[in-house]
Design a protein around this nucleic acid. Sequence first.
DNA 1: AAAATAATTTAGGCTTACCTAAATTATAAC
DNA 2: GTTATAATTTAGGTAAGCCTAAATTATTTT
Lengths: 218, 218
Amino acid sequence: MLSLSEENHLKSIFHLSINSEDGVSTNSIAKNLNTKASSVTEMLKKLNEKLLIVYIKYHGAQLTELGRKTALKIIRKHRLWEVFLVEKLDFKWDEVHEVAEQLEHIQSEKLTNELDKFLNFPTHDPHGDPIPNPAGFIKITPKLKLSDLGIGETGKFIGVKDSSSAFLKYLDKRKISLGCNIKVLHQEEFDQSLHIGLDETNLTISIKSASNLYITKI
Amino acid sequence: MLSLSEENHLKSIFHLSINSEDGVSTNSIAKNLNTKASSVTEMLKKLNEKLLIVYIKYHGAQLTELGRKTALKIIRKHRLWEVFLVEKLDFKWDEVHEVAEQLEHIQSEKLTNELDKFLNFPTHDPHGDPIPNPAGFIKITPKLKLSDLGIGETGKFIGVKDSSSAFLKYLDKRKISLGCNIKVLHQEEFDQSLHIGLDETNLTISIKSASNLYITKI
DNA sequence: AAAATAATTTAGGCTTACCTAAATTATAAC
DNA sequence: GTTATAATTTAGGTAAGCCTAAATTATTTT
């Protein structure tokens, strides 16, 4: 079993890996975790010993397959809890992170899988990020925005990019809620604003708003 | 903010206080937490400093009002999570404890109170123990068993004493589930078994089973 | 390519929360 | 009320996870 700090380092390396082909640097991890480089070095040695990363002195760290799976299991929990908080406990999308950071470390496979079932096996968290399966498998697809759709296409609303309270209120007022289907009906030439069709109503949103909505094609 | 270990010590002292008028002994806490007396002594000094307990060398510890409230807030979380696990995630009553031990340490008042609301403000956990309110207030009432009711009285089923899997299956089969109302219709003189009325059906249960069911009078 | 700068690691400390063994105090037995 | 026993505390040590400052290695500049 991994310590809280080990888990956090793994997660950090995973997230930082996405935008970097080779090893993740000591400094970037330190910045990410709000800690010092020397502390990170220590931890990298330990994770290397445990075969979770490959660490070469002065050349950063890379996750092994085991490390990747382990990180994704933690991320799975994080994202499931985020869905729970938003869908069941009325948290706003910008309030969930801090709590999910704690909940992701709870150790109980049964808990995680039952939660998954209870939430009806969600595929994405409220920020539009995909939820790994129990084995730590994830299908990486580029995040699609509503503004990426062509006329006539339909997308399922899975998350927001900017989760400012102003934007969330904007969505609330227009009854645009997580999971609803949005069809792009027409685009204004003048300002690129989009006419969209929701379950019941049609409405117009700015291109700026549209590029703030993550969707999956249907 | 308290550390995990501080929280566990407080909780332990609270539970051990119930069956002892004066201070809780160092040894009993050590036994309860699976740790050594010397470690407990250290912690008692610290909790005393923080005004959570009154600790007198060689004479054990007693919770202060602050310590009691603090302990009860942790216990509130523990019991709410137990309800969640049983009611929403299909955990059995004997599977919840280990997970609730972890969940009780999550820090977020919003989370706790939203969970409470989501669960519809339950008054008791699946073991029949009362759930403190957000301020850490609890009404201590002796645990009432179904076997304590008189003929004609009705109780709400709030928990079990022995949560062996055999007994839980017994309840399942008879559709006796948490929260249902049970009316005592008649008692056999021969073996003291009870005829009881459930929401829909009537049935007979042994006195042994009846004394294993915690209820609140209605 | 040497020098300057930046990144990283090492060395050595600190705190928390444990531990064992020895010393001290309380309690029970006589 | 001593004495034996049990409970508790103190002293001193360990591991994890953090830190600062100094030393080392990489990288960038010139």
